[in-house]
């Protein structure tokens, strides 16, 4: 039997209800404020990087104006500096990478979520995660020493047979010569793009697979029960449901591909002309350009490099933000009861 605590009149305490307040007091306030301080410091550090880049890039951008984006040469001694060539190189390498990575990531994600036997599914998921953890220098070695010679042969074949497509055309060499000039087909955006594709593929694949695995089980079963084949079920349920994940994952991969450095540095031979001959020798990217130029840079040139880095950061930021919006807006993120 419970009893009420006896209230001793003699002590004369006034029983007042505790004040209910959302405001933290005592130790809670200490906790809240120290957490806020940590958050603020991280905000200062990370935001500081962005602000610093913008601040450092400002003199360059104000000095060269729009020419900075349209000039392809990089001659700091002659006061001619522009990122048109490195920017188009970045984009073409990233596009080559996505041309390889997108279909493979989609197929792999579909295989893992829909076709793989239940026993090996978790192993495959771990393999994809492991692929994402492999250092980029390793993919660089693989692309440089194993893939590039093969890609060169493929480029020769493409040039000989599909040379009328401007992407595969190679200037200054004849594909039908008795001994083709093999070096013209190496060190290209194409070869670099393949190595970068290996880096972005697991990222894109992981996002897609995650979204596919959230497909409501009930809708899949309904499709099968209506007589759909497995592919019919995928087409009518899994792909529409995962559309956001497919787009978002691809764009996240694209963001990573744009910023990739070391594999590109290893493979390309740097040039400074705007071109769309993907399989031709010579290419460049903003990050590779920074890695190759920072050493002997004067302060003004460093500011130009920082401006290039800032532009790259803005582009990847834009791509990533769009990806996040697409993934969040799609039905995929919403909780559904299967």
């Amino acid at each position: 039997m419970t009893t009420l605590p006896s209230y001793d009149e003699a002590t004369g305490f006034d029983v007042v209800p505790r004040r209910v307040s959302r405001k933290a007091r005592g130790v809670d306030a200490v906790f809240e404020h120290s957490a806020r301080a940590i958050g603020a410091s991280v905000l200062v550090i990370t935001g500081g990087v962005g602000l610093f880049l913008g601040w450092q890039a400002y003199p360059t951008l104000s000095r060269y104006g729009l020419d900075f984006f349209t000039e392809s040469r990089w001659l700091p001694e002659e006061d001619v500096v522009g990122i048109a060539a490195v920017l188009t190189g970045t984009v073409s390498i990233a596009l080559v990478a996505m041309a390889f990575a997108f279909p493979l990531a989609l197929l792999t994600a579909l295989y893992i979520s829909e076709y793989a036997p239940e026993r090996i599914k978790s192993t495959l998921v771990a393999m994809v995660d492991l692929m994402a953890a492999v250092p980029s220098i390793v993919y660089g070695l693989w692309g440089y020493l194993l893939i590039m010679p093969r890609a060169g042969e493929l480029a020769q074949w493409l040039h000989a047979n599909l040379g009328w497509i401007p992407f595969f055309d190679i200037r200054g060499t004849d594909p039908d010569a008795a001994v083709p000039d093999a070096s013209r087909y190496l060190y290209s955006s194409f070869a670099a793009g393949i190595a970068v594709a290996m880096m972005v593929l697991p990222m894109a694949c992981a996002v897609m697979r995650q979204v596919f695995s959230q497909t409501p089980q009930g809708e899949k079963e309904a499709a099968l029960a209506l007589g759909a084949t497995r592919w019919g079920m995928i087409r009518s349920v899994v792909l529409p449901f995962g559309r956001g994940g497919i787009i978002g994952g691809t764009m996240l991969g694209l963001g990573r591909a744009l910023g990739e450095t070391i594999a590109v540095v290893l493979i390309i031979s740097p040039t400074f002309d705007v071109k769309w001959n993907l399989t031709e020798i010579g290419s460049n990217s903003v990050s590779a350009h920074i890695a190759l130029q920072f050493g002997e840079a004067s302060p003004a040139q460093l500011s130009a490099l920082l401006a290039a880095g800032f532009v790259l950061f803005l582009i990847t930021l834009l791509v990533n933000t769009l990806a996040a919006v697409v993934v969040n807006r799609s039905r995929s993120g919403a909780g559904t009861d299967a």
Partner: peptide, 19 residues
């Protein structure tokens, strides 16, 4: 801000510390 900064290319982080 933190989510935005995950987009920072690693070379730019290096360039920031270098500068």
């Amino acid at each position: 801000i933190v989510e935005a900064m995950t987009a920072l290319p690693s070379i730019v982080a290096g360039l920031f510390v270098y500068t």
